Amino acid sequence: MVEWLDYRRRRWPSTANLHLLIDNQTANTTSRASNHWISAPLRGQDATLERLRVDRQLEEALTHGPDPLHLAEVFGLDEKTAMRYADSPRARLEQAAEQDLR
């Protein structure tokens, strides 16, 4: 994932496209890459689009704190979904804090 983000930044340094996965056609727009373009390289891999989506949201919540408002704004989620997505990283952060105290 980090390698892709580095490549994306180098390849399209001034793109306004907020989608994680972009291509030559979508780098200069705000639309997403096609399902075929995204699915073809992932075929046969452990990674799936759903896993990438969940991983990206978890990473955002762990990096910026499990703030449902932030998650809602970054990912365009409704408030109930954002609250649910914030619960998992919040639990991980609390668990890590408890382990540090031991």
Rank of each mutant, 00 (worst) to 15 (best):
E94I: 09
A33N: 04
H19D: 02
D23M: 08
D55C: 04
R11N: 06
E79T: 06
H36M: 07
M1I: 00
H19V: 00
E73C: 05
L58P: 01
P66D: 09
H64A: 06
M1H: 04
R56P: 01
H70M: 11
V54D: 15
L18D: 10
R43C: 02
L62W: 08
N35Q: 07
E60Q: 07
R43L: 10
T63C: 14
E79K: 04
N28P: 05
L62E: 01
L21R: 03
A27P: 03
S14V: 07
N28H: 12
T15M: 01
H70L: 13
G65N: 10
S14R: 11
D23T: 10
P68N: 08
G65A: 08
D23A: 07
A72R: 15
R9Y: 03
T26R: 03
P89Y: 11
W12T: 05
N24A: 15
Q99Y: 02
M83V: 11
A61D: 01
G76M: 07
P89M: 11
A72M: 10
Q57R: 15
R56A: 15
S88M: 14
N35W: 01
G76W: 05
T30L: 08
S88Y: 15
A86V: 03
A47M: 12
V2L: 14
A27N: 09
E79D: 11
T63L: 15
A86Q: 12
V2E: 15
T48V: 00
P66M: 11
T26E: 01
R9F: 06
P66V: 04
Q57I: 15
L49N: 14
I38M: 03
H64P: 07
E73L: 06
E79H: 08
L69S: 12
W12K: 08
P89S: 12
Q57M: 15
D100E: 09
Y85R: 14
P68W: 11
R8A: 05
R9T: 09
E94C: 04
